[in-house]
Design a protein around this nucleic acid. Structure first.
Lengths: 216, 216, 216, 216
DNA sequence: AATGAATGAGAGTTCATTCAT
DNA sequence: TATGAATGAACTCTCATTCAT
C-alpha cells in the first residue's frame, strides 16, 4: 500500500490588494503584517471584539491601510480560516507521509494535528467562532479535512486493513475526536501538547473503533 | 449493575432580580418572557447581533425592564448556557434511564442527545459561540457532561463490560463525537435528526472503541 | 372668478420616531429641536458637510438621540425639503388669498414667495442641494408648486384674463423667475427682501408675458 | 444695429501645473485627461461622491498624478465650472451671431443654450452643485452670462426694439427661465432637447415680456 | 513625470446601559 | 414594576492628501 502521497495537501494562492491588483514587495510585506496581526487579535478577542483599530495597531499601520489589502473585517477573517485550513492539512499530510503502515499513518496524522494546534493555539481558536461569523467557510473547512480522511479510509477498507463502514461518517467522527481533544488538552489545558497517555488512549480507542470484525 | 439512576441529572435554581431580590409572580413571568426571548434571539442572530432591543421587543417589554432582571447581556447569556446544559443532561438521563444493558444505555444517551439537538437546534447553536463569549461557562458545560459519562464508564469498567481505559479521556471522545455528528447531521444537514444508518455507524464505532480486549 | 381658495395649500403630518412609534411630548420636543438644528446646519454647511455631530451639537442632544427620531441623515434632509415645500406653498397661498383680482393674485403669490425666502434664507438654501442629494424629492417639490400655478393659470385663461398658452410651460417659467430672483436678490444680495423696483420690473415682465394678444 | 459681435464670448487661459510651472506636451495631455475624467465623474456622482480615486482611475493615471496638476479636488471643480461657463457662453454667442434681427438673436441665444445643455447634460448638472461647493465661482458664472444679456438688452432698448426696463433684472429673469426650462425638459425629461412647442411657448412669453409698450 | 502605498481624521451609525418619570 | 428617552463610546469604513521611490 502506498503511504507516502499526501492525503490532505493542497494548493497555494498569491496575495493581492483589496481591489485585486497585484502587489509590490512592500505591499506584500504590509499585507502579511496585517494578516498576522489579525490572526492574533481575532484569537485573543474573538471576531466581534477584534476591532480594525486593534488589528492595525498590532500591525503598526494606519487604519486606512487595512482597506488597501482587505475589503472588510469579514473578508480577512474568511481568509484566515481558509489559511488555517490549508496549514492544518499541510501539517497532517507532512506528518502522515512519514508513516510506514496504515495504522501509523492515522497516528501520525493525529500527531500532526495536535502539534499544529499546539503551535498555533491562537490561530486555532479562531475556527470555533466561524459557526456564526462565517458558516460557509467553516463547512468548507470541515469538508476539506473530511475528504482527506475519506480517501485514506476508503483505501484502507479496500485492503481490508480496517472494517467496512461509511467512510464519511468515520471521517467526521475522527474530526470530532481530534477537535475536542485538541481543545481540551491543548487549548484549555496547561500542557502545550496532548500528553502521551491521553494520546495513547485516544489512538487505542480509534484503532479499535476502526478495526475489522475479524481482528476482534 | 444499576442502570436506572440518572447519570447526567442535576439540581434546579430559583429566579431572582438583577440585584438579587426575590420576585413577585408578575416579576417571575416577566423574567421568564425575557429569558425565552433571549434564547431565540441569541440562537437566530448570535451573541453579538442579538441586541437588547431585539430581545426586549421579542419579549414585549421596554428596554429598561431587561435590567430589572439581568445585570447585563453577558449574564443572560451565561444563564442560558447553564440552562441549556441542565436541559441537555436531563434529556440524556431520561433516555438512558430506560436502558436495560450498559450498551443500550450508551445508545440511548446518544439518542437523547441527538433528539435534544434536533428539537432545539436554535438553542444548541448558542453553545458554539460560548468559546469566546463565555469560556468559563462553556468549560463548566463540558465538565458536567463529561462527569456524567465518567461515572457510567467507570461503573462499566468495574464490571468488565468495557475495557480499561482512562474514563476522562473516553468521556471527552464521546462528547467530541456527539458534538460533531450533531452539528453535521442535525444543525447543518437537511434532515431533522441523525439518520439511522449514520447513527448505527457511529454506535458501532463507539462500541468497538470501548470494547474490552477480551471481546476482540 | 373665485380668488380666495388657497391654490398651493396642503395637508399636515404628525411626527413619529424613526421606527414609526408615536412620541411623548418630550419626544416631540426633542425631535423638533433636531429638525430645527438640521435645518440651520444643512443651510450653513451644505448636505455633505452637515455632519450628525454638528446637528446634534446644535440641538444639544447626544449623537445617538438623532437616530431615535430619524433613520438617517438622508431621511432628515428629505423631510426638511418636504417641509419647506409645504411651508412655501402655504406662504404663497396665504398671501394670494388676499387678492381681489387675478393680476393681484400673481403679484401677491410672488410677494409671498419672496417674503418666505427672505424669512427663511437658511431653509431655502437647502433646496438647491437637492438636485444631487435627493433628486426625486426635488422634482416632487417643483411639481407641487407647478401644480398650484397651473390651476390658477388655467382658470385665468378660461376667463380670458390671460392669453392662451401651455399652462405647464408657463408655470415652470414663473418658478424659474421666482427662484433666480429670490436667489439673486435675497440669498446673495445684501438686502433682506427683493427691492421694490426689482419687484416691479419682474412683475411687469410677467404681466406682459402672460397678457392676451388682444391686450397688446 | 450691429448683431454680429459675440455677446457672451470670452478669453482663453493656458494650462499649468499645480505649482504654476509650465507644462511639457506630455504634461498637457495628462492634465487634459484628468480634467476630462473629472468632468464626467463630477457629473455622474456629484461633487462629494466624486472621489480622487474615481477620477484618476477614469483618467488612467495614478492617484498622486492628480496633485501634479491640481492643488485640490476643489480647485479642479472650480476650473470645470469656469470652463463650463466659457463653453456655454461660446455656444450662445456662436448661435446668436447668425441672427439678423434683435428678436431672432434672443431666440438663437436660447436655442444655443438649450442645445448646449442637451449636448452636455452631464456637465451641466455640475453647476447645480456649485451653490454650496463653490458659491463664488457660481456667482461669477451667473454674472458673466448676465453681462452678455445686459449688453444686448441695453442696445435693444436704445433702438426702441424692446421696452425700457432695468436690463439687470431682465437678464436674471432670462437666465432663470433658461435654467429651469433646461433642467425640466432636458435634464429631467426624457427628451434630448427642449420640444418645439415648449420652446415656442417660452419664446412667446419672453418676447411679450420684453415688448415695448407701444407694441402692445 | 509618474507612481501607489500610506496616512489619519472624520464620516454615519449602532447599542449596552442609565435614569427620570 | 415598568417605561422609553437619552446617552456616548465604539464601531466599520472612506477619502483627500502626502511622499518615498
Amino acid at each position: 500500500m502506498s503511504t507516502n502521497s499526501p492525503r490532505w495537501e493542497t494548493e497555494e494562492q498569491q496575495p493581492s490588494g483589496a481591489d485585486g491588483r497585484t502587489l509590490t514587495s512592500r505591499g506584500v510585506r504590509t499585507r502579511g503584517a496585517i494578516l498576522e496581526a489579525a490572526e492574533s487579535v481575532f484569537a485573543e478577542h474573538g471576531y466581534h471584539d477584534a476591532s480594525i483599530v486593534k488589528i492595525t495597531e498590532a500591525a503598526s499601520v494606519a487604519q486606512g491601510t487595512f482597506y488597501l489589502y482587505f475589503e472588510s473585517k469579514q473578508q480577512v477573517f474568511n481568509e484566515l480560516v481558509r489559511d488555517l485550513n490549508r496549514r492544518v492539512r499541510h501539517a497532517m499530510s507532512e506528518r502522515a507521509a512519514q508513516a510506514r503502515t496504515r495504522a501509523e499513518r492515522e497516528r501520525l496524522g493525529f500527531r500532526g494535528y495536535f502539534e499544529f494546534v499546539a503551535e498555533h493555539p491562537a490561530l486555532y481558536r479562531i475556527i470555533r467562532q466561524a459557526e456564526i461569523v462565517a458558516p460557509d467557510i467553516l463547512r468548507e473547512h470541515y469538508e476539506r479535512i473530511s475528504k482527506g480522511y475519506v480517501d485514506g479510509l476508503r483505501a484502507a477498507m479496500a485492503t481490508g486493513e480496517i472494517g467496512e463502514s461509511d467512510p464519511q461518517v468515520l471521517s467526521w467522527i475522527l474530526m470530532g475526536i481530534g477537535e475536542i481533544v485538541g481543545a481540551r488538552w491543548v487549548l484549555w489545558g496547561e500542557t502545550d501538547t496532548v500528553p502521551d497517555d491521553v494520546f495513547e488512549n485516544v489512538m487505542r480507542f480509534i484503532e479499535r473503533g476502526l478495526a475489522s470484525r475479524e481482528e476482534m
